[in-house]
Design a protein around this nucleic acid. Sequence first.
DNA 1: AACTTGTCCTGTCATGCCGTCAGCTTACCG
DNA 2: CGGTAAGCTGACGGCATGACAGGACAAGTT
Lengths: 215, 215
Amino acid sequence: MTGQVRTVDGRVAGRRGQATRQKLLDCLSEMLSSSPYRDVKVIDVARKAGTSPATFYQYFPDVEGAVLEIAESMAKEGASLTELAAGRSWVGKAGWQTAQDLVEGFLTFWRKNDAILRVVDLGAAEGDKRFYKIRMKILNSVNNSLADAIKDLQSKGKVDKDVNANAVAGSLVAMLASVAGHQKGFQSWGVKQAELKPSLALLVHLGVTQKKPVK
Amino acid sequence: MTGQVRTVDGRVAGRRGQATRQKLLDCLSEMLSSSPYRDVKVIDVARKAGTSPATFYQYFPDVEGAVLEIAESMAKEGASLTELAAGRSWVGKAGWQTAQDLVEGFLTFWRKNDAILRVVDLGAAEGDKRFYKIRMKILNSVNNSLADAIKDLQSKGKVDKDVNANAVAGSLVAMLASVAGHQKGFQSWGVKQAELKPSLALLVHLGVTQKKPVK
DNA sequence: AACTTGTCCTGTCATGCCGTCAGCTTACCG
DNA sequence: CGGTAAGCTGACGGCATGACAGGACAAGTT
C-alpha cells in the first residue's frame, strides 16, 4: 500500500531520484540538529546535499513538507515503543522493572531523534494537525499500553475507580516526552542523568499503581 | 537597576520611542499566536504596528531578540507562580487542595502565555542558553517550592530518603508544562479539560507525598 | 518666531533566499 | 539508435533582511 514515491509535479521517482530525495532528507535532518529550526534554509540543505534548491522543490513542497516526511518515518520506527509497556506486569518487583525499562527506552528513543522531535512538538503545539497526528502516533503506543495497565488494575480493585486512566497515562507520557526533550536543562538544577531515570520511573510507577514500588 | 531602554545604536529611547517599541512587541506577540513561529516576518510585524521594518531594527537586533524581550517580561509576571506551592500544606485534605490549586494556577498561566511559551520551549530545547534561562526562571519558582516540600516530608520520615527531591519536582513541573502546552492534544485521546486537572493534581500529590490524596 | 538639539521614523539600497520554469542532460527500453 | 520519461540546473521576478543617511518632529532656548 506504500504508493510510489512521486515528485511534486507528478512524475514517478526512479532509483536515482529516490537516492537524491533521501540525501536531501538526511541533510535536512542533520541541519536540524545543528541549527535552529527557524534558520534552516532550503539553499543550505541543497548545498549540503551537493545539489540545487530547484531539486529540493522537485521532491518537497517546502521545508515543512520534508520535515513531515522525516517525522513520518521516525514515527514508524517509534511504533516499537509499544513493547516497553504492553503486556508487562505492574506488580511487585516486576512492576518496578517495567517502570524502569519504560523510562529507559523512552529516553533513549527521544535522545536519538531529539532534533526532529523538537520540531514535531512545536508544530503540534502550534496546532498543526499533521504534526499533531505524528506526535500522537508515537505517544499513542505507550499511552494506550499504560492506560490499559491502569484499567486492568482498576478492574482488580487495586486502583480507585474514579481515576481517569487515559488522562493519567497521557500526563505521564507527556512528562516523559518533556523531560526527554529538556534533559540538558535538568543539569542546571543540579540533577544528573543517572538520578533522573529512577525519579521518572518512580513517578510512572506511582501514577500507574498508586503505590510505592517494591525495589 | 532596570537600565534605560536603548535603541540598537545606543540612543536612549524617549516617551514616543518607548511607545513604538511596545507596540511592536505587542504586535509580534499577537502574530506569534496566529501564525507559526517560523513564518513570522519582520515586515508583517512592522506593517501591523503601522510602521516600517527599519523602525523594528532600530529597537531589536532581530525577531529572536524581540521574542526574548517579551519572554523576559512574562518571566517576571510568572514569578507569582511561587505562591502556588510555597509554604503550603501537603497533609490530608489541605494537601489535596494544594495540589489542585497548583495545577489550576499553572495551567491558567500557561494558557495565557502559550504562544510565547512555545517559542521559549523550542529555544530552550534547541540549546539556546538565553531561552533556557528564562524557562528556568519561570519553572524554578514552582520547582524549588515543590522540592522544598518533598525535602520537608523526608525530614519528617514521611517520604523515602532515597528520593531525589529536585529530580522528582523537576519532572512534575515538566509534566505540567508539557500538558499545558498540549492541552488541545488530549482532546483527541478522548480526555476532556475537566478530567485532566484532577488527574494532574493526583499525579502531583502522589509524586510529592507518595500517597493517595484524601479527598 | 527663529534656532538648536536630540529623538524618532522612513526611503532607499545591496544582498541573499524563495519558489518556479524552461530547457538541457541522463538513463532506460524496444 | 531514436524515443520517452526521469533528473537536474541556470536564471529570474519577488520579497525579506539589515544598514544608512537624512528628513520629520517635539521641546526647550534665545
